[in-house]
């Protein structure tokens, strides 16, 4: 359904994706340690919420593992600490997100923890919420400095750079610096464009002799599969694929396997369970970048607690980026057991 509207609003989206790639300024970033909370702060936060107050979580979407995990671990963390919480899915739909912000504000939320997929379109709604006294914590992006919100984010540039640098390292070490590289992009989401740019920049810098043969539509397994099938018709020599997320990379892997090209290198982003298992299995899936969704979720609630308790802490905080490769994959296989998907 959301795709339907996205297609229908084709021109609008393209116009918007142009607007939101505005350069981001360098800023001082705090770390996860800055967000350690004390029992006193938790108590103060519970008091600040009072009888009817609550924390509202507005997710970008529930239909990718990363976004769902962030939102869900935030909810989990809040509930564990005995704080009331409400979770809303914006389904990557601007209208839904604006409605969610307005509804949460109206129903007395004290803090809104939000993921923005299209910041310019919802900033004014958030400004209104902030004016009404609602504290804002943004995750997966950094657009809220101006309206006094806290931002907790993996830097998309960091993610892209980590993936691109690792791919460049593989090309230099394993392929003597020569490679045909395909990048899987997803221009619908503005932040992702930053990732793709960082991937391309890191490869150009780290493996200058490698050729980037093209950037293709990824984002979902089906898109990655279709794009790579077609790309292989034109460039059968593609041997490195770097994807802005794991889901698209799976599709690329299918296509490469189908084409009998089992020697290619694939690097993704998100550290999904399947990607980790593939890396552990030692096939062509070589690496993925952990976006630490569970950690991010916890950090958002920690920030909310500090805001409610009135503590001092840095306004912009970076979530740690970790590269997962065959060397350290064992830690991830045990460290973060994802609950089984059950019907």
């Amino acid at each position: 359904m959301k795709k339907f509207w996205l297609y229908g609003l084709l021109l609008l989206i393209i116009a918007l994706s142009g607007v939101v790639t505005l350069a981001q300024e360098e800023m001082e970033l705090g770390t996860a340690e800055d967000l350690e909370v004390t029992d006193a702060e938790i108590e103060a936060a519970a008091e600040a919420l009072g009888e009817d107050g609550f924390i509202g979580i507005v997710a970008c979407t529930f239909s990718t593992e990363y976004h769902f995990t962030v939102a869900d671990s935030a909810r989990q963390r809040a509930e564990d600490l005995g704080l009331r919480v409400t979770m809303v899915d914006s389904e990557i739909n601007v209208e839904k997100q604006i409605n969610a912000i307005e509804n949460l504000t109206a129903s007395g939320a004290d803090v809104i923890v939000i993921c923005l997929f299209d910041p310019p379109s919802v900033l004014s709604a958030l400004q209104e919420a902030a004016d009404a006294g609602v504290k804002i914590v943004q995750y997966a992006g950094r657009q809220l400095a101006d309206i006094g919100g806290v931002t907790i984010s993996i830097e998309d540039a960091d993610l892209g750079r980590a993936a691109g640098e690792y791919a460049a390292q593989l090309i230099v070490e394993e392929l003597d610096g020569q490679a045909s590289v395909a990048v899987l992009d997803y221009p619908d989401v503005a932040n992702v464009v930053v990732r793709a740019d960082a991937i391309r920049a890191a490869i150009a810098e780290g493996a200058p002799d490698a050729v980037i043969v093209g950037s293709y539509l990824g984002g979902t397994t089906e898109n990655g599969l279709t794009s790579m099938e077609t790309a292989l018709v034109e460039h059968p020599d593609i041997n490195v694929v770097v994807s802005i997320n794991d889901a698209g990379a799976y599709g690329a892997m299918q296509a490469l396997q189908n084409a009998g090209n089992e020697d290619a290198y694939i690097v993704g982003i998100d550290a999904e369970k399947q990607a980790i298992e593939l890396i552990a299995a030692g096939g062509m899936y070589k690496g993925t970048v952990d976006t630490s969704p569970a950690k991010t979720g916890e950090m958002t609630i920690n920030a909310a607690i500090k805001l409610l308790a009135g503590s001092e802490f840095p306004q912009n905080i970076a979530v740690p980026v970790t590269l997962v490769t065959a060397d350290n994959v064992a830690d991830f296989l045990t460290a973060e057991p994802t609950p089984e998907a059950t019907p």
Partner: peptide
């Protein structure tokens, strides 16, 4: 085809 199943895999087909 994709060897996996996801909750969003059909949304690319409606249109």
């Amino acid at each position: 085809r994709q060897g996996t199943a996801t909750g969003g895999m059909g949304s690319d087909f409606l249109f």
